[in-house]
């Protein structure tokens, strides 16, 4: 990717980010309720006036947005208000983000560890019965919602056989098994669908690559099938797979709301859920902005990295 296209991509993403965050601010201001009264139900009128002044609620939307943006970039994500006082959203994020990131990393590792061998093998046996069976069952699996898998796992592993804890999160510092045992079910629920998606992507590209001349060449030189598949075909065939995997990284942080809620993982998605339930509109504004930033930044990273991983990306696009 040339510097110029990179520049225009960054500019585009900046526009998207500004629009998303402004949209969040707009939604917070469009509410038919007075935020000061909602968040400070027992405060005096003086308290509320100070509150409005501090947050820029007395100004128009644009000025309010700029105020908010100024605080946001300095790491002040607003407060969560409850009857006993306030708690900075930044503290909540500091607690939730590592959990969401770990959940995402485990999910990706498990999904890719299953999907890559499965995809390679299925492409190698393309058209055969095994390939068709894998492909068809993965198609069915890819349509099953993650909460369906999560709830089924809870019923079987958590309730019926009492093998795994069904709620909460335990940090790694409290021991490896307690940590992992709390992560297995959420990770599995998220992975099953991803395995289906990844395998199908890899298989499609792999089938195309295996038809290329240089593969025939390698085979006629007498290289073993294993070597051809893993050393010659996998890398060029994995571009789409890794693009999709990287995009999912952004989506999994905060996008795993239902799974984080079912298993009470207290990640970013669960924090959003709590904020929405507690009508903490200022917290919602910052959390949604944060998630959009993750998504957009991963998006850009994918574009930049794709050029490095596969130098042919550009002429391949030209060839269509």
């Amino acid at each position: 990717m040339s510097l110029r296209t990179l520049g225009s991509r960054v500019a585009q993403l900046a526009i998207v980010l500004v629009a998303v965050t402004f949209g969040c601010a707009l939604l917070a201001r469009l509410l038919p309720v007075d935020l000061a009264e909602l968040l400070l139900p027992v405060g005096t009128d003086v308290d509320r006036a100070i509150f409005r002044k501090q947050l820029g609620l007395d100004k128009n939307v644009v000025a309010y947005y700029l105020d908010w943006l100024g605080r946001f970039v300095r790491g002040d994500f607003g407060d969560i208000y409850f009857s006993g006082g306030t708690e900075p959203v930044a503290d909540r994020i500091a607690r939730a983000l590592p959990r969401s990131v770990l959940l995402m990393v485990y999910t990706q590792v498990v999904s890719l560890a299953v999907a890559i061998p499965l995809g390679v093998w299925s492409a190698y046996r393309v058209g055969r019965r095994a390939d068709r069976a894998i492909n068809n069952s993965l198609f069915v699996i890819s349509a099953v919602p993650s909460f369906a898998i999560g709830l089924t796992l809870i019923i079987l592993l958590g309730v019926r056989w009492q093998l795994l804890p069904t709620l909460d999160y335990v940090p790694l510092s409290d021991g490896l098994w307690p940590h992992l045992s709390h992560m297995i079910m959420p990770v599995l629920s998220l992975s099953v669908g991803l395995v289906a998606v990844y395998t199908r992507l890899l298989r499609a590209d792999m089938v195309a690559v295996l038809r290329e001349d240089y593969i025939t060449m390698a085979a006629s030189k007498g290289l073993s099938n294993t070597r051809i598949l893993w050393c010659h075909a996998l890398r060029p065939a994995s571009i789409t797979l890794f693009t999709s995997a990287a995009l999912n990284m952004g989506a999994l942080i905060g996008g795993a709301i239902v799974i984080e809620t079912i298993f009470a993982t207290y990640g970013i998605g669960f924090e959003i859920f709590l904020a929405i339930q507690g009508r903490q509109y200022l917290a919602i504004q910052s959390l949604v902005a944060l998630i959009a930033i993750f998504y957009v930044v991963f998006n850009l990273a994918v574009d930049v990295l794709a050029g490095y991983v596969d130098p042919r990306t550009r002429d391949r696009r030209l060839r269509g």
Binding site: V16, G255, A292
Partner: peptide
């Protein structure tokens, strides 16, 4: 660009936020 803006928020987060705003009395 507007499509990209909407797509940059995960489906469910977007729906959840919109429901929260629209269903406020």
């Amino acid at each position: 660009t507007s499509f990209n803006v909407i797509l940059s928020v995960p489906n469910l987060v977007l729906a959840l936020a919109l429901v929260a705003v629209f269903a406020t009395n």
